[in-house]
Design a protein around this nucleic acid. Structure first.
Lengths: 143, 143
DNA sequence: TTAAGTGCAAATTCTTTGCATCATA
DNA sequence: TATGATGCAAAGAATTTGCACTTAA
């Protein structure tokens, strides 16, 4: 399994340990393209390590994400945010201060290149989300 | 307040009622561009209606969203989803079955049009998310 | 008048964490 | 063998819901 070498390296590089649990969480996640939630990862891991706990899965998902080996999909935090602006527009989410900015430039995306008409996907709406550092946070950074 | 007429219409059209709470939730949300979470909306509404309950705010946010008057930002549900694919790619989320599909066509977005270099926003990464109905769900629809 | 909506509190759901124990390096 | 990681269970955080009461239409 070639992907394991990158895990081994990353773990060593950060002075962490390559536990069976950590290895299996990563292995199972590389096997699927279903973007499972934590509970589903837990079930997959449990088939191979019946004693594993949900807390361990959460901790390892967090660690793997911090190592840059996996992605986590959610809005800045796990709660909903509401907006009375219903016209299509983009967002910029600041990873430092957690604020969301509206980007007023209207979407100009060539969707057909990404989703050909015959693909069978029917798009209701789309969102382009940027993540990074907002002007306020980059100007007040402390060194 | 011209936006109120659209609320009045929508409410009537659906056989619902225009309660003080519903009106104030919508009014307060139209006043801000900060994409508040439910708890923050609750605090804003509470200043005008001290007796309002958090549950009522949640119920009205849901109703307003169903009427198409406000947007809710979150991934399909309010929990994280994980992915071992870390290269940039797009997603299609099916609103029927809640599955997320990877779109393999690489991003081809003219970011500078949206976020000029001198805007002060530093982009770490971006995500283009499509929402709609996937091929499986549209072919098995029951009428 | 009547049924949609509210307030309250309990229940659910997802995630995090404290602590004693385990096991990797 | 030292300390990072685990298992367990309890705590936390966001959201939903049951129910008796209220109120808009």
């Amino acid at each position: 399994m070639k992907n394991m070498s990158v895990l081994t390296e990353k773990v060593r590089e950060q002075g962490l340990r390559l536990t069976r649990q950590r290895k299996v969480v990563y292995e199972e996640l590389t096997k699927v393209d279903t973007h499972p939630r934590a509970e589903e990862v837990f079930q997959m891991v449990k088939r191979r390590l019946p004693q594993v706990s949900l807390g361990t899965v959460y901790r390892n998902l967090k660690t793997l994400k911090e190592m840059g080996l996996i992605s986590e999909y959610k809005y800045a935090r796990n709660y909903s945010r509401f907006d009375a602006r219903i016209e299509a527009h983009h967002h910029f989410t600041c990873l430092k201060c957690d604020r969301i900015f509206d980007l007023l430039e209207p979407p100009d995306l060539n969707f057909e290149q990404i989703l050909p008409k015959n693909s069978g996907f029917k798009v209701d709406y789309s969102r382009l989300e940027f993540y990074g550092e907002c002007p306020g946070c980059s100007s007040t950074r402390s060194f």
